[in-house]
Amino acid sequence: MKVLIADDSEFMRSLLREILEEEYTIAGEAENGVEAIELYNENDPDLVMMDIVMPIRDGIEATDEITESDPGAKVIMCTSVGQEQKMKSAIQAGAQGYITKPFQKPSVLEEIENVVAG
């Protein structure tokens, strides 16, 4: 399974990469919402780990656009934001999962399994 990581923090991308690369293939790393959309279209990943607070375009906007063009896209928000209204906007944008930072490795893998299983 191919996973795209979208997070503006180099540090957070490296953390996620370490957690994910044991079991999955990394299908690219985006630093902002626009890059996330571009890499999604180029690499056709099975799953996106999407940060919310990012420059240029945020993760909710990017998710919205990705699920618009590919209704089968699977996106997990992976964010520090723990606001109920944001979670609702993420659902509206088409995200299927939500992980709040700081996270532990098992909770990340568990959420991925849940989302992939549908």
Binding site: S9, E10, V81, G82, Q83, E84, K101
Partner: peptide, 29 residues
């Protein structure tokens, strides 16, 4: 980058409570 990500996560921890109590959303840069 690590310091910024820590700041990012601390910021959410700090302002999410305001947004949840007020049933609004607060974005941060």
């Amino acid at each position: 980058s690590a310091m910024k990500e820590l700041g990012n996560i601390m910021t959410s921890g700090f302002i999410d409570g305001w947004a949840n109590v007020l049933e609004s959303s607060i974005d941060h840069s």
